[in-house]
Computed example of a mutant assay.
Amino acid sequence: MTGLGAVFRPQLPPERLRAIARLAEDSGLDELWLWEDCFLEGGISAASAALAWTERLRVGVGLLPVPLRNVALTAMEAATLARMFPGRATLAVGHGVQSWMGQVGARAESPVTLLREYLHALRALLAGERVTVDGRYVKLDGVALDWPPAEAFPILAGVTGPRSLRLSGEAADGTILTASNAPEQVRRARGLIDEGRETAGRTDPHHVVIYLRAATGPDAEARLRAEIEADGDGTGAEHGVAGDAETVARAVRQLADAGADTVILQPTADEPDHEAFIRFVAQEVRPLVP
């Protein structure tokens, strides 16, 4: 079955998360995803609260920028979530927006090298290993978690370019794709991910999550078009969907057919009614997505 969820955008004030997380749970939404965009809201703190306020809802953070976070700290926080809320938390890591990383003095000269070292160390720590590594960026001396996850905790990579997609296949357990990817681009991304998996000899499942810009209501097309243009994706309708539940569900099914395992509907930044959007996804779109 194709997973379906929605984004709580960090342009909303943090104090609104509680009501929306509870609504997502009560409405039957599969997943609620959060963003750690600079300089808005913390991903781990928000995810912890959303998980604590709910009983069933799965909560994802897509993504944590690795230049901002020591890998041991990320492992500690991931393991804590995994043990407190088994099977309900998903974390993704990635390069981060390079201009933001520059603003905080954390920009890496080689983001791909940093992410490769980080993924290998993070997955080893979460597997309960004692890790010693002296990499270009990641340096650990006999580090092991006292409370590693009690069961496997997959780590996803949020990436875009060909080198990073191959790296995700090699070193991550799944990939998050941005809303800039149309179905044909998802197929190409899957191919690059598979190249990385083959190089690393991996045969385990690799979960692909993709964001999909979505809008509904009388002004949906205008809002969607403005958001696509603001994000620098031109005017292509393939970079989002506006319309009723069947129209949105059709776009979700097309992404699933192209290789996405989970589609997360991303409301526009100026969505006038975020609660209504959650209900729309859970109660109207979900029944139309197998």
Rank of each mutant, 00 (worst) to 15 (best):
R136N: 12
R116Y: 11
R130P: 06
A124P: 07
G135A: 11
R136I: 04
A127P: 02
R136Q: 14
L126W: 02
L114Q: 06
E117Q: 06
V131T: 04
R123M: 01
G128S: 13
A127S: 11
V131S: 07
V131D: 08
D134N: 14
L122G: 04
A127E: 13
A121S: 01
P111W: 11
E117A: 00
A106W: 09
L122A: 05
R123H: 05
R116H: 12
A108P: 14
V131P: 04
R116K: 09
E129P: 05
A124E: 02
G135M: 10
E109D: 15
E129V: 03
R107A: 10
L119Q: 08
L125S: 03
V112L: 15
A121R: 00
Y118E: 14
D134W: 07
A121E: 04
H120W: 08
T113G: 12
E117L: 02
Y118F: 04
R136P: 05
A108Q: 15
G128Y: 03
V131M: 07
V131W: 11
G135K: 14
V133F: 12
R123L: 00
A124G: 02
L122R: 00
E109W: 09
R107V: 09
R116L: 03
P111N: 14
L114W: 03
L119M: 03
L119N: 02
A108M: 13
A108W: 11
Y137I: 07
L114A: 06
A121C: 00
V112R: 15
A106I: 03
A121P: 01
V112D: 15
V131Y: 12
A124Q: 05
A121K: 00
T132H: 09
V133Y: 12
R130M: 07
G128L: 03
E109Q: 14
V131E: 10
D134F: 08
V112E: 15
L126F: 01
R136F: 06
P111A: 14
A127L: 06
L122F: 10
R130W: 07
T113W: 03
L119P: 03
L115H: 11
A108Y: 12
L119Y: 01
A121L: 02
Y118M: 04
